[in-house]
């Protein structure tokens, strides 16, 4: 996983709530067997509309998505995270994320930032008025800062549990970390009751 420390980029304000993973990446894209090449599937249905915010010329190259509440609901498909990353997003801001989506994003180094809806509203207003506004997502300081050319600013602190933050800041591989507990896993396995189900005889 790539480390995430701090990132500054332009934003895409996405004024929609309940953006489910079927909208982020429709099912027919899930037939691919790789982790890349999903960028054209991102929000595929909505992108047919030339006025959809992602299609606007002023949003090209933007890397911070500011979405409505309940982002990433529905399916467990990690392809939703890959699609956002393949497209160029480094961070997503919302007042509420679906659990599985959030877990998937943090495992892939896509920072999901939870801010109160009134702060999200202000970020929407600022970045709609000023598409070139620079938005910084600073994981070290746990802070989002946005600044428009007219000097308008939004600054907000966010929370992320210390363990997840540490893994992101250092780009640590979860499997490698877990395997350091080999002795504990082996001890647990040795103590499992024999009536537990098995798929094959060993």
């Amino acid at each position: 996983m790539d480390a995430f420390t701090t990132h500054t980029g332009r934003a895409v304000p996405l004024r929609r709530s309940n953006v489910d993973t079927d909208q982020i990446i429709p099912a027919h894209w899930l037939k691919k067997v790789t982790r890349d090449g999903f960028e054209d599937g991102l929000f595929e249905a909505w992108r047919k509309d030339p006025d959809f915010v992602l299609n606007r010329p002023e949003r090209q190259g933007a890397s911070v998505l500011v979405a409505g509440p309940d982002f990433g609901t529905g399916s467990s498909r990690e392809h939703a995270v890959w699609a956002l990353q393949n497209f160029g997003f480094r961070a997503v801001i919302s007042s509420r994320f679906a659990d599985i989506f959030r877990g998937n994003s943090l495992k892939n180094g896509l920072l999901t930032v939870v801010l109160e809806q009134r702060v999200v509203d202000r970020l929407w207003e600022l970045t709609e008025a000023h598409p070139t506004a620079a938005v910084t997502v600073d994981l070290e300081a746990r802070q989002v800062r946005a600044e428009g050319p007219d000097g308008a600013t939004v600054t907000a602190d966010f929370e992320l549990d210390e363990n997840a933050r540490w893994r992101l800041l250092n780009g640590l591989d979860d499997i490698g970390l877990t395997l350091k507990n080999e002795a504990a896993i082996a001890a647990y396995e040795a103590s499992r009751p024999s009536f537990k189900p098995r798929t094959i005889a060993v």
């Binding site: 399916s75 467990s76 498909r77 990690e78 392809h79 995270v81 599985i100 877990g103 998937n104 495992k107 892939n108 549990d161 979860d174 499997i175 970390l177 877990t178 395997l179 507990n181 896993i185 396995e189």
Partner: peptide
């Protein structure tokens, strides 16, 4: 519970998952 593909890999390799 449902898990993402990174967690699928994690369970395949370790038969465990770190969870809050």
């Amino acid at each position: 519970f449902g898990i993402g593909t990174s967690q699928v890999e994690h369970v395949l390799a370790t038969q465990t998952l770190p969870l809050a």
